[in-house]
Design a protein around this nucleic acid. Structure first.
Lengths: 153, 153
DNA sequence: TGATAACGTAAGGCTACCTGTCAAATAATG
DNA sequence: CATTATTTGACAGGTAGCCTTACGTTATCA
């Protein structure tokens, strides 16, 4: 009955972990290849979330699943690199709008194109199965979110 | 043409990242619920890889994708908790076999059962789509591994 | 108007990794 | 044998990416 760790099948948790690392590394690698050696894995949290209209840092934090403070640091970092800029929110003077600078826009688009190309490759190779994979992952997240206490500040 | 971050679809990288966190948290939560407050997320690297026959720490490290030193620390930690034990490898007396202690075996099995139940739920809900999702993730990892330099010590 | 909540931010701490180095044990080889 | 190569576990020190706690400021609402 010692059913621990059947070798015929990688546990989902190990599989997902490896996929996460691989994607993270890949995006950083691509950025470095374009000459941006200053891009770090944590920056992906912004790139994968921030749209062309900008957003508040607190909002970004919530969507990325990290604290406002952590997101604040990432944003400050990217402002320092000239990729983001912060402007006062005209509607709420507590808030600031985070958005891409002109240079940052170009950079983010190339990264976005890269990940999009990668996804397109998967769609071509797996077709409907790729959509299914996305659905499963989304369900996984929502299902576990029901059970696990949110860790957001 | 500002196609950055279409909001209609979460980028794969964000999706996978969230799934990883959710799973990691879930396993730790389950362990704590069973009274093992001393289990940390990093320990999952062992539980998701070590089978009933035991293995060398260096091997575990390679399979988990972390350095020997890091895995060594995790293993030492779990030995200290009475979950793992290290015995001389009969085939190579330089080496030691890492394996579950009697208590550890019981603990690991409950965790294994938990993740297995979770996967079974997904199989029931998604059927063939779940298998497809696993295939996509596996392909993702191997595809990106071809391109990204291995980070294993 | 006063209480409460939301925003950004500063300070400090922790975890999970990393690199570099080393001695000891053993295996493999000439 | 004697020597060289391999393997391991451990120590030292460093870093990235988070977290908690605590503020001051500005909005919102009773």
């Amino acid at each position: 009955m010692s059913s621990i760790g059947r070798p015929d099948r990688t546990p989902l948790i190990a599989l997902v972990r490896r996929a996460d690392r691989a994607l993270q590394d890949e995006m950083v690698r691509e950025a470095h290849q374009r000459g941006r050696d200053d891009i770090k894995p944590a920056h992906n949290a912004v790139f994968s979330i921030l749209g062309p209209d900008g957003d508040r840092a607190a909002n970004l934090a919530a969507r990325a699943g990290i604290t406002r403070q952590s997101m604040g640091e990432v944003v400050r970092d990217l402002v320092g690199l000239g990729i983001l800029e912060m402007v006062p929110d005209p509607h709420d003077r507590r808030a600031k709008l985070v958005r891409y600078s002109e240079a940052g826009k170009a950079f983010a688009e190339s990264g976005y194109r890269h990940i999009t190309d990668l996804e397109r490759r998967f769609e071509e190779e797996f077709g409907e199965d790729y959509a299914a994979a996305r659905r499963v992952l989304e369900r996984l997240v929502t299902l576990l979110a029901e059970v696990t206490p949110e860790a957001q500040g």
